[in-house]
């Protein structure tokens, strides 16, 4: 079985919860009949958190006064992997950022670190004007 769900949302932080809770629900739905309660909670939380981080990054790095910016969240399930891709039309970026040094009390820079730690595979690619960040994890 493979299925695709696409959400197109306005690039506003208001919608981060919507995207992440959708991710969490989808992950939960897929995990529930295959995993124990604890495992499926962990799986759903990983997606909730990763999507929050990716969506927040997309919104905060949108160019100033880009009111019409949209962020697309695509879910693809191919047994046993769930892949979520977040696309936006911002400037290109890199995912190879080093983890921030915690001793200096950093306030940001945790987002990609969290995504990398939670997901099995994180791929960034630039497609024309689009940044596409694909994150996948196996059940």
């Amino acid at each position: 079985m493979s299925s695709i769900i696409t959400l197109t949302l306005p690039g506003d932080i208001l919608f981060a919860r919507l995207a992440s809770q959708t991710a969490s629900s989808i992950a939960r739905l897929l995990a529930d009949d295959q995993q124990t309660e604890t495992e499926s909670c962990v799986f759903a939380h990983a997606f909730e958190l990763a999507v929050t981080e990716a969506f927040t990054n997309s919104v905060t790095h949108a160019p100033e006064n880009a009111t019409s910016a949209m962020v697309t969240v695509t879910f693809l399930f191919e047994q046993p992997h769930l892949t979520v891709s977040i696309s936006d039309a911002n400037e290109p970026f890199t995912i190879e950022t080093p983890a921030p040094d915690i001793e200096s009390f950093p306030e940001n820079g945790f987002g990609l670190l969290i995504i990398r730690k939670l997901m099995d595979r994180v791929i960034y690619r630039r497609d024309g004007e689009w940044n596409i960040l694909s994150m996948s994890k196996s059940l």
């Binding site: 958190l49 927040t56 009390f105 306030e107 940001n108 945790f110 987002g111 670190l113």
Partner: peptide, 16 residues
């Protein structure tokens, strides 16, 4: 129920 990196950043920033 839920915290993300922005939340962590806010708490770390506050303690600084």
């Amino acid at each position: 129920d839920f915290i993300d990196s922005s939340g962590i950043g806010a708490i770390v920033g506050a303690s600084r």
